[in-house]
Write a protein that binds this DNA or RNA. Structure first.
Lengths: 190, 190
DNA sequence: TGTTTTACCTAACTACATTAGGATATAACC
DNA sequence: GGTTATATCCTAATGTAGTTAGGTAAAACA
């Protein structure tokens, strides 16, 4: 049959499709109508698989955090110290460039009560902690240093994807410098 | 008359009201209907004063940038060097806490073709340049250093307002440390 | 004072999210 | 294999928001 009587959707397929639309066409284009069209069904049918647009966005947020957690862990496996920081920063930036909309969703956590989301976010934090503990950081110092590193990297990539930097001067070079600044700050944290 | 026949609106009043709603109730509540209700008119009437929701948001973005430009300039008047950096950072954070929604609008510039917006954004950059030139920075070094400082401060405050930090460890203390890290980095920029 | 302009209105249209209820393919079971 | 049950899809209809068209009366002006 050219048009199968059932599309054979799953929550997984809907989330995957939503992710592609969000990252390729922007978050504004992410409507149930648009997703349904892409999947060859009508928008009310999606309610069988996701809990409305709100529920879908929660799933996207979780998906984004899971990908980040995985990529960050892979990035720092087998390395430590300065090189681990550089690889973490690079994998962070790569993720954001590949999934700009997904990333923006992961930031808008808004007092997240979802247990699973909290767990994956905790995994990401643990990866950072593992990297920074090599520098002798622990306790509150570790927390402050982590906040600093997250701020600098998140700040850079979020300004970058929203077009906040001019392009006459190379953003790659700026990012390289920022990585080195972070590295040197960790070597003798206040 | 209890109900005046004309509300006597101006673009200014509409923008001001929109700003209050956005910052107090969140960007999601910022609808023409909500603004009209607040002003005692019907939503189509707003089209006399602003160019739809899109035009209103552009005005809000401009308004946000103008306030920022003014506050940052005032913050660093009469001081220079380390203290100027600290005051800039503090006024940045204060603005974002007071106008979280307005701030988020200023970040989503998206290849802004608006000449006025570009001009005000340039003013803000000039203030930062003026502060950092004291450290002997110029040319590309100045650009890189500026990007670093913006990234760290923007990163911190945007993570902070979106609830990205736990509260067991004081965010104020983290921010104080970040300011000192930035100061020391400027003293011997790479 | 008469005329024009402006600021508001109602009515109506579009887009999107959502719910209710129905049809049938697919799966489960006998 | 035939019957039943469930799940997946549908159409129809509702609510909210943005927007446009066109009307009316207040305000500005000459």
């Amino acid at each position: 049959m050219l048009v199968p009587p059932r599309a054979g959707l799953t929550t997984e397929i809907v989330v995957e499709t939503a992710m592609k639309i969000a990252d390729k066409e922007g978050i504004a284009q992410l409507t149930l109508f648009r997703i349904a069209e892409e999947l060859g069904v009508k928008s009310p049918s999606l309610y069988e698989h996701v809990d409305g647009i709100e529920g879908l966005i929660k799933l996207l947020r979780l998906r984004g955090l899971k990908i980040m957690a995985r990529e960050f862990q892979r990035a720092v496996i087998g390395v430590s110290g300065d090189e681990a920081i550089r690889r973490f920063a690079d994998s962070f930036r790569s993720f954001v460039k590949e999934h700009p909309s997904l990333y923006s969703l992961t930031v808008e956590s808004d007092i997240e009560d979802d247990e699973e989301i909290r767990a994956v976010a905790g995994e990401i934090l643990d990866t950072i902690y593992a990297v920074l503990r090599i520098y002798g950081l622990s306790g509150e110092k570790l927390i402050h240093a982590t906040r600093y590193m997250r701020s600098a990297i998140h700040g850079f990539v979020s300004l970058e994807i929203s077009g906040g930097f001019g392009l006459e001067v190379s953003p790659d070079e700026s990012f390289d410098l920022i990585k080195e600044v972070i590295v040197s700050n960790m070597k003798n944290w206040l």
